[in-house]
């Protein structure tokens, strides 16, 4: 037995802990890149978790469940988009209200699903490759949502940096006035970016209720939407760094549990602080280059846009 064999299960746990954060944060990253700050991630996640669970238990189709979970997240995002983009309501307050609304709605609609069990999502085993020692089970024997989360990191990176639509989205986020002046569809872009954020938060929720802990219980997101929001800031709006941030957070969370099991005599509350402290520490270390962050931060984040202003 070598150290690597011990590490494999730890990393597997880290993957499950990080995947919902990665989904939700990636969606929020795109939303924020377009200049919209949606603090309702927690609400969209929890409604996604319920919708995915409900549809999967009723129809037996996890794929349909995921799709509906994502759409449910997008549905809440649509309310947000209508209020903030069409009705120009304050984004911060609307986002927080969206969380209250989403948590309430899911709890109300989910009453009948409490205490129902569900078989966890099937692992997609990639033959041959998955039997490679250590790397095999890590990379080639995960469920479909884990693969999708990685794919989305690359897709978002590619979209933002290599496509014309991505360029438009970034331009809208930097200055909606200039973007509007040169004829870019500011409002449409922001609507789509917000909806994408909702889809991804919904998928993050679906991962929770279908794979991570296959069940429905009120408030089962337990604050993960907030962590996702913080991770977007941590990433300084770059997908690659977001991936690193989500896994750093997941890794420290799991590591402290292992440390406790190994008999580390530190109060458990202090152990539970570690992921938060580590995130702050790393943010401080990477934030020192002010110019670089300014380049990535969407300058008109959170500001309302009205074309006739």
């Amino acid at each position: 037995m070598n150290g690597l064999d011990q590490l494999t299960p730890i990393i597997l746990t880290v993957i499950t802990a990080s995947t919902p954060l990665l989904f939700a944060a990636l969606g929020e990253l795109v939303t924020e890149k377009s200049g919209v700050l949606n603090l309702g991630v927690e609400g969209m996640m929890v409604i996604g978790a319920l919708a995915a669970f409900a549809v999967t238990t009723q129809t037996g189709s996890a794929v349909l469940g995921m799709a509906v979970g994502a759409l449910a997240g997008a549905g809440l995002a649509l309310i947000f988009a209508f209020l903030t983009l069409t009705m120009l309501a304050n984004q911060v307050a609307t986002g927080l209200a969206l969380t209250i609304f989403g948590v309430g709605l899911s709890a109300l609609a989910g009453t009948g699903f409490v205490g129902i069990a569900l078989t966890p999502l099937q692992k997609l085993d990639i033959p041959v490759l998955s039997s490679i020692p250590v790397l095999g089970p890590l990379l080639f024997n995960q469920d479909v949502l884990v693969y999708l989360s990685f794919a989305m990191v690359f897709a978002v990176y590619w979209f933002l940096n290599a496509t014309r639509a991505g360029l438009i989205l970034r331009a809208v986020g930097v200055s909606h006035a200039s973007a509007h002046a040169i004829g870019l569809p500011v409002k449409l872009t922001r609507y789509l970016a917000t909806l994408f954020g909702g889809l991804m938060a919904g998928l993050g929720g679906a991962y929770l209720s279908l794979s991570y802990t296959p069940m429905w219980a009120e408030n089962m997101t337990a604050g993960r939407g907030w962590i996702a929001l913080a991770l977007v800031v941590f990433s300084t709006w770059r997908p690659g760094r977001l991936l690193a941030g989500a896994y750093l957070f997941g890794f420290i969370t799991v590591l402290q549990l292992h440390a406790q099991g190994a008999g580390f005599a530190v109060p458990s509350q202090v152990m539970s602080m570690l992921p938060y402290l580590a995130t702050i520490l790393v943010l401080v270390l990477i934030s020192r280059d002010k110019i670089k962050i300014m380049q990535n931060a969407p300058a008109s984040l959170g500001k309302p846009f009205h074309s006739a202003k």
Binding site: L208, T213, H258, Q260
Partner: peptide, 16 residues
């Protein structure tokens, strides 16, 4: 109450 974290703790214990 945090299903995810409870699950992670159980996994850590099994791994040990």
């Amino acid at each position: 109450y945090d299903p995810g974290k409870e699950a992670d703790a159980a996994k850590a214990l099994i791994d040990q």
